[in-house]
């Protein structure tokens, strides 16, 4: 199963390599990884998407916790959380396709951020389903380049009460 793990780490050189080394050294996989500073410049947040059975995920969170540079590990999976990704898509935009592409952009509440002679560059944020959907719709026009940030995630403030 796929898990989204949010990790607070000290903002020092070498920390990223400690984390990625842990994953590679123990044969865990990383599907995506996002890192940036938090409000506190001494602390960074990493959002890691990984997959494996419960035993593997348990080891991943425990091993992360064991690193001296790791402050906090939070597996968001299994609770309510927001997940977002930002994607830039450069799509071939022949003159007779432009309005159709713009339509799609509008429906998905994306935006065109750069225009070339024969291309549109579209920026979109959302969860994976949304990104997958727009990519599939744009594919027939010819996607020239696609860049994804990987997932960032945050637990919801108010959690729905389950089974009550």
């Amino acid at each position: 199963m796929r898990h989204t793990i949010s990790v607070l780490v000290t903002n020092e050189f070498g920390v990223l390599s400690r984390i990625s080394g842990l994953f590679s050294g123990r044969g865990f996989n990383i599907e995506s990884l996002c890192v940036a500073e938090t409000m506190d410049p001494k602390v960074s947040r990493m959002t890691i998407v990984s997959s494996g059975d419960n035993k593997i995920i348990e080891q991943i969170t425990k091993q992360l916790n064991k690193l001296v540079s790791v402050i906090k590990v939070h597996d968001l999976t299994g609770e309510e959380y927001l997940k977002r990704e930002l994607v830039l898509i450069k799509v071939h935009a022949a003159p007779d396709h432009r309005s159709e592409i713009l339509n799609i952009v509008e429906i998905f509440r994306a935006q065109v951020v750069d225009v070339g002679a024969n291309t549109y560059t579209i920026e979109i944020t959302g969860d994976e389903e949304k990104i997958l959907a727009i990519t599939e719709l744009l594919r027939p026009f010819g996607v020239k380049e696609l860049v994804r940030t990987g997932r960032v995630a945050m637990a919801r403030s108010i959690k729905r009460k389950e089974n009550k």
Binding site: G14, S17, G21, L22, G25, V68
Partner: peptide, 13 residues
Amino acid sequence: VGITRPCTKHNYL
């Protein structure tokens, strides 16, 4: 520091 990262509990430069 890079070489011993996986075989130390922690290391420093």
